[in-house]
Design a protein around this nucleic acid. Structure first.
Lengths: 203, 203, 203, 203
DNA sequence: GATGAATGAGATTTCATTCAT
DNA sequence: TATGAATGAAATCTCATTCAT
């Protein structure tokens, strides 16, 4: 049984690589099998079909992201400083996750969209879950008084996450990734906490 | 000549719909032709091949976006209030563009990525162009004194645009779109200019 | 009426060029029309279909060849010297014909075979006619006594013509064509009249 | 492995028949497959594409011919009698090869020319190789003294081969092939060694 | 369980031919 | 008479999936 799980994982990994490299449509089952020196008929012992394994690959990616995002308790933050630290902490972990495996960004941003309506929906749902998480942080901040009252927490949460994922996308294409990651975290915090304005008289 | 241009435009439009609905791979040339009650061979009188028309569709979309984005002069803004107005103005036009044609968001966010490396590159380039534009706004703001010195204009510009396009994506999926659009614009402005913090003592 | 004949001839010539250049299958009616700056629909006013014009082109070529071959009277030759002169005369005219228009050899040897069973048959018939002609020369030679008795005139005629057409094929691919043509004529005459042997005691 | 090679050979043979019967352009992959009661997709497991298999068919034919032609040593002939015997021997084998498989002549003379420039070139090369071979025979004959000095060996070799292949072509269309083959061999020898003249005073 | 040969649905693309203008 | 837009038959080729060994 262990053996079977290992093999499944192996196939999953080869498939992830193939999908990242060539996209869903152009990746061939036979290529994936050949990379593992196994008959491509064997593939169908572990997965029902091509879409099935793509969903499995995506599930793994979603789980990786969820693990990072859900690692902190949104209600535990008490001050703006703590919040800032938290953003950096979560952000760094997230960025590290994507920097550790370039295939993630390639798949999430380029290859997965449009493959299957069901999958698009699942991506939207994962997105929504992350948005809810961020919303909880913001609402906690308002409650605790270190974020302003009257903020549109729902939309702001989405905006913040859009930035964070924009950063991930940008990171994948950048040279000095460590440095760029820090610049992004700083920029995101700036916009989240102070904005870019000089603070003089904004209605 | 007018006739031919019209026909081309007609095909282009039917293709845009097909690509938005089923994605590049699943959209069939014959579907596009049948929708226009024409022989599918006719298609090839107006476009070289399937990828060719997809590029043409995308070119149209890029041009639409560029027209909106490039409509204002980044250096003309003098005060934070003017800047905020400008953001709202450009944002509203951009959101209106996408709300007027749901297919744009579907194609840009779901169907175009991963179809062709060349096209991915062109999307990245369009993105970069918009980023440069926003960067110019921010640098102007710093120069004019209504944005803080020392800001990382390059990354902040990217972050801002990530939010704006995040808004577009969200809008397409939302109910009361007009209202949601305004909420997004407000949220983006908030983050850009003041952040969410209470302003008390942030190092 | 003259006008129409001219046009027909013009099309025929453009088609000959197209067939020689690209072969029957790859030559497109539209290309032929475009070369004449005429609508390709017009083509069908002068020819029934693509095969029809190919047949017409071939008929022209056959006629050109027949004119050269049939120009002399096989029964008028009286001596070996006259015969040799005659071979040179006819051969030169034939080689000149093909050297004057490279397309002839290209079409005859490369493009026409296999296009259509009917056409293959017509080529065979033309060939047979030439063979009969040559056979008549040989039979005349035997009768007049300057060729040996007992020769297998039928096969020898075919062999001779195979050489002559082999020469045409070779000429088209050679550099100094005038010189090569003379060498071929000399070679053909040698084989026809004396052979290559030293003449000592061949049973 | 044996199995796969057999299948490949089976397909090759069916293709040879199809190409001989209908020509390259009109032969359909599906016909070849159906003749073997196999799915047409199977074809593509053994050959890359239609041109690929045509080249393979031709390679087989070229190899068959080369084997026959290269079987004797041009320099070993010492007398005219030996030479004559040699011509008969090689000629008989060559004619036998083509008589054993009618498709060879059909493909070589009717279907292959003009299919593909590359292939035309390869046919020309094969031809050239045979010509060089015959040239070696003639040069040997001159050296050994049983052929006349001063002969234009290069062109004469081409002329001789043109006759021999002319014979092949003629054979395929004839009734009593065995008899015709002998007549051709006799005719070729006559022209090669003595010519048709009576031998009286030819300048 | 593993294999890979076989399958055939399905999509793109070409271009001779037609026919309304 | 000339035109060229429209047509669709026809053919190639790909590759996910099946299944006998």
């Amino acid at each position: 049984m262990e053996k079977a799980t290992d093999k499944r994982q192996e196939i999953l990994d080869a498939a992830k690589a193939a999908f990242a490299e060539r996209g869903f449509a152009r990746a061939r089952i036979e290529d994936i099998a050949r990379k593992l020196s196994m008959g491509h008929g064997t593939f169908y012992r572990y997965f029902n079909n091509k879409l099935d394994i793509f969903f499995s690959v995506m599930d793994g990616i979603f789980a990786d992201i969820a693990r990072v995002v859900a690692d902190e308790d949104p209600t535990s933050t008490e001050t703006l400083e703590e919040y800032r630290d938290q953003i950096f902490r979560v952000g760094r972990r997230l960025y590290k996750l994507f920097l550790a495996d370039e295939r993630l960004a390639q798949i999430i941003f380029y290859e997965a969209p449009g493959v299957d309506p069901d999958l698009d929906r699942r991506m939207d749902e994962m997105n929504a879950a992350i948005n809810r998480y961020t919303e909880a942080y913001i609402e906690n901040g308002i409650r605790k008084g270190f974020l302003r009252r009257g903020l549109d927490a729902r939309i702001l949460a989405k905006a913040v996450n859009a930035m964070i994922f924009g950063g991930i996308r940008d990171l994948s294409a950048s040279r000095d990734r460590e440095r760029t990651a820090e610049r992004w975290l700083t920029a995101v915090c700036t916009l989240m906490l102070e904005g870019m304005g000089t603070g003089r008289a904004v209605a």
